[in-house]
Computed example of a mutant assay.
Amino acid sequence: MIIWLASYPRSGNTFFRILINQFYGIKTYSIYDDPLFERLTGVADVVGHQKREISYEEMMASEKIFFVKTHHLPSDDCPAIYLVRDGRDSLVSYAHYILSFKNESLRKAYKNKIKSMFGWNEFNEILKKLIISSDCDYGSWSQNVYQWNKPSKFTFTIRFEDLIKEPLHQVKTAIEALEIKGDFSRINNQLPSFAELHETWPQFFRKGKSEAWKREMSQELQELFWEHHGQVMQKLGYE
């Protein structure tokens, strides 16, 4: 069977994969195969990332459990662990990720879609597009959160902010809530800190902190964000 490790991009998905790999030796997969890890030496080993060797249909039909990362909107009834983060921090981090890793042609596409009235600021315009647009695969931040947390879905949701504060507790609670069968004996008491991850791979593991948006999201963009995502933010208890 598949258990989705789902999230909107830059919401703690990779950090959760690191945790279950380091704590329990659980290897995970990704529907994207995460080719970026090939460019960042050592990341795949820390994350516990595995290349997929069978189809998703075979994974679903198997008695073995496969943990698979996705940012896509849900399309089946498989159980899921959903990572959610303050949408402002997710979008700020995602905008930096696009600037760091996406190819130049994609960056030009963003630039051509949105023109600033007050001069071009690539980061701000990418962030603006992420706020107001809905990706056909991921949806907007609000759509992603809403779709994965419908009452009809068997999903356990973890807040990124809680995962950073008490990682082992959050992982154990998720596994117990989904009644996942298997040997989950601790194999390792050592966990790389976010600071260590940042020092080794600074572009991918940027900060791992909350409320970075206060320094990087203009008042105009904050108001735009609340206009588009305020209802879901309030439902989640973010202010």
Results as ranks from 00 to 15, higher is better:
residue 77 D to V: 04
residue 78 C to Y: 05
residue 79 P to S: 06
residue 79 P to I: 05
residue 79 P to D: 04
residue 79 P to L: 07
residue 80 A to H: 03
residue 80 A to E: 02
residue 81 I to D: 01
residue 82 Y to C: 02
residue 82 Y to H: 05
residue 82 Y to W: 08
residue 83 L to W: 05
residue 83 L to E: 04
residue 84 V to P: 02
residue 85 R to P: 01
residue 85 R to W: 06
residue 86 D to F: 11
residue 86 D to C: 12
residue 86 D to E: 11
residue 86 D to P: 02
residue 87 G to Q: 01
residue 87 G to N: 02
residue 87 G to W: 04
residue 88 R to F: 04
residue 89 D to M: 12
residue 90 S to H: 03
residue 92 V to T: 02
residue 93 S to G: 00
residue 93 S to T: 02
residue 94 Y to A: 04
residue 95 A to N: 06
residue 96 H to N: 07
residue 98 I to M: 04
residue 98 I to K: 00
residue 100 S to F: 10
residue 101 F to C: 10
residue 103 N to M: 06
residue 104 E to T: 11
residue 104 E to R: 14
residue 105 S to V: 14
residue 105 S to D: 15
residue 106 L to E: 12
residue 106 L to P: 00
residue 108 K to D: 06
residue 108 K to Q: 13
residue 109 A to Q: 12
residue 109 A to F: 12
residue 110 Y to P: 04
residue 113 K to A: 08
residue 115 K to D: 06
residue 116 S to W: 13
residue 118 F to E: 07
residue 118 F to R: 10
residue 119 G to M: 08
residue 120 W to A: 10
residue 122 E to R: 10
residue 122 E to I: 11
residue 124 N to M: 11
residue 124 N to C: 12
residue 124 N to I: 08
residue 124 N to W: 11
residue 125 E to S: 13
residue 127 L to G: 04
residue 128 K to S: 04
residue 129 K to G: 10
residue 131 I to W: 01
residue 131 I to H: 01
residue 132 I to Y: 00
residue 133 S to V: 09
residue 133 S to N: 12
residue 134 S to R: 13
residue 134 S to P: 01
residue 135 D to T: 09
residue 136 C to W: 14
residue 137 D to N: 11
residue 137 D to W: 14
residue 137 D to M: 13
residue 137 D to F: 15
residue 138 Y to F: 15
residue 139 G to K: 05
residue 144 N to L: 05
residue 145 V to I: 15
residue 146 Y to A: 12
residue 147 Q to L: 13
residue 148 W to N: 03
residue 148 W to Q: 05
residue 149 N to H: 12
residue 150 K to L: 15
residue 151 P to E: 15
residue 151 P to G: 14
residue 152 S to R: 13
residue 153 K to H: 12
residue 154 F to D: 08
residue 154 F to R: 08
residue 157 T to L: 07
residue 157 T to I: 09
residue 157 T to E: 03
residue 159 R to V: 03
residue 159 R to S: 06
